[in-house]
């Protein structure tokens, strides 16, 4: 039986390649049950023998008893050539298959022209449908922010920041695919800095919500902080939990807080991670209790 609501954490920044298995065990000891594996476009280019490399990661995670709940693919800076980018995403799907990971999270591209943005995003996501079908992998779009510029670099809504827009993308792509290939990953930090109503956002997405990236902030900058550490502007965690309960969410509860962890002195970090895992278990208990 598939385990529900596995508590997880972003792995890439926390796990130097040396002693991978020991580090994964450390995450397990801290209370985590799953990890997100983040890949950037350049990582793929640099990793010549990637099947061997990611095969080793899969084995180490399996030995440590840690599930790989999702892969998060991020483009590096500016996409110069759309076809090259699509090729990178295909490679990410292959890696997903190697890691036996059910979800690939892909940030939508952001353009100033919203019509063009939609066209290009649809083209990119559509191109992935056959391979995703073949491997039985779900592709998740994610809500984003962009910078309004100026001295304070104020964060404003990016692609898929609105639940209705996200629903439109997912439903359009799934109808075209003829089956449920596309879903959504909610980034709580991005939703908070763009002042979204967390509970309503989740309910609008409904069963389309497959993964979550959990982090907190002060409502102004996307700081990727530990939940429940802010007194001003923190994420509406009560609404988050109520929303997940209402839609019967069963995916992983994954914390995307690497920046916060790196703020702590190195020897204190495992203790910070134990707090995060404990928060995840509290969230799971509350989501299940409300059912």
């Amino acid at each position: 039986m598939k385990e529900k609501l596995l508590v997880g954490i972003g792995s890439k920044e926390l796990l130097p390649e040396s002693n991978l298995e020991d580090n994964l065990r450390m995450l397990k000891e801290c209370g985590f049950e799953s990890v997100i594996y983040s890949i950037k476009e350049n990582d793929l280019k640099m990793q010549a023998n990637r099947h061997v490399y990611f095969g080793a990661f899969f084995k180490a995670a399996k030995n440590a008893g840690i599930a790989i709940s999702q892969i998060h693919f991020k483009y590096d800076e500016e996409i110069k050539e759309c076809n090259d980018y699509i090729e990178s995403l295909h490679n990410a799907l292959h890696i997903c298959n190697t890691l036996k990971c059910p979800f690939l999270v892909i940030d939508p591209i952001q353009l100033k022209d919203s019509v063009q943005e939609k066209e290009i995003n649809l083209k990119i996501y559509r191109s992935l449908t056959p391979v995703a079908k073949k491997y039985d992998i779900k592709i998740c779009l994610i809500n984003t922010i962009k910078c309004a510029g100026g001295y304070h670099q104020h964060a404003i809504q990016g692609a898929c920041a609105d639940a209705a827009e996200a629903v439109w993308y997912i439903d359009t792509l799934n109808v075209e695919a003829g089956e449920e290939i596309f879903g959504f990953c909610l980034d709580t930090g991005c939703a908070n800095v763009t002042a979204r109503d967390m509970e309503r956002f989740i309910i609008t997405l409904g069963s389309r919500l497959k993964c979550v990236h959990i982090s907190d902030n002060n409502g102004i900058s996307d700081d990727h902080l530990m939940p429940y550490t802010q007194t001003l502007g923190q994420v509406d965690w009560q609404g988050f939990i109520a929303g997940l309960n209402r839609i019967g969410y069963e995916g992983a509860l994954t914390f995307d807080v690497s920046r916060s962890i790196h703020t702590f002195p190195e020897e204190v970090r495992p203790h910070a991670m134990k707090v995060i895992a404990a928060v995840g278990k509290c969230m799971r208990k509350s989501i299940e209790a409300e059912s």
Binding site: Y228, T229, Q230, T231, H271, K274, V275, A277, A278, V279, K281, C282, M283, K285, S286
Partner: peptide, 10 residues
């Protein structure tokens, strides 16, 4: 600020 179940870890 932490949920009750995470205060010991805090």
């Amino acid at each position: 600020l932490l949920p009750e179940g995470a205060r010991r870890e805090g």
